[in-house]
């Protein structure tokens, strides 16, 4: 290892790297959460595609870093639709951040799992394909145990 002085760019970058790691380390909780996600199966389920999202086109889409806004006025539900060639699912992600109401078409009575990064809750759809679930807040996805094979939605940020 040769000598460094502070006018050396690579040395300064190396020092900065160490400084960032010490001042702003990756929290152990975050790593645990990411590893918990790794345990959820992504194999053997068909990934549904997002086909509609009430959030897209939202005029509140602002990335200003010079202002602080505590919240938007009225929190509202978010409606999203996912599809595979076999099944469609409409989800109403309610404004409380916990409740998800949905329906699958064609209508069928099957098990659906709502997964979050730390939890999974299951419900049975009724004969019209409807279901109602409540979880902890945070990102989630729905797994549908359809007769032809499992379908899973992409992770949804809420």
């Amino acid at each position: 290892m040769t000598h460094f002085d502070l006018s050396d760019d690579d040395g300064l970058l190396a020092l900065l790297s160490e400084s960032l790691d010490r001042a702003d380390p990756v929290p152990a909780d975050a790593v645990r959460a990411a590893k918990a996600v790794a345990q959820l199966s992504d194999v053997d389920a068909e990934l549904a595609e997002l086909v509609a999202d009430s959030l897209v086109g939202d005029a509140a889409l602002l990335f200003r870093h010079d202002v602080t806004m505590e919240s938007r006025g009225e929190p509202s539900d978010r409606l999203v639709t996912f599809a595979t060639p076999q099944v469609n699912v409409d989800l109403d992600l309610q404004a409380d951040g916990r409740t998800v109401v949905g329906a699958i078409t064609p209508p069928m009575s099957v098990d659906v799992d709502l997964e979050t990064t730390g939890q999974m809750v299951r419900a049975r759809t009724d004969e019209l394909g409807r279901f109602h679930l409540t979880t902890s807040p945070g990102r989630c996805r729905l797994r549908i145990h359809a007769h032809e094979g499992a379908v899973v939605t992409p992770w949804i940020t809420r």
Partner: peptide, 14 residues
Amino acid sequence: RQDVFAGTFCRLFE
């Protein structure tokens, strides 16, 4: 930031 961190790995595995 922690949520986005976990979400990024959700996306990776998906």
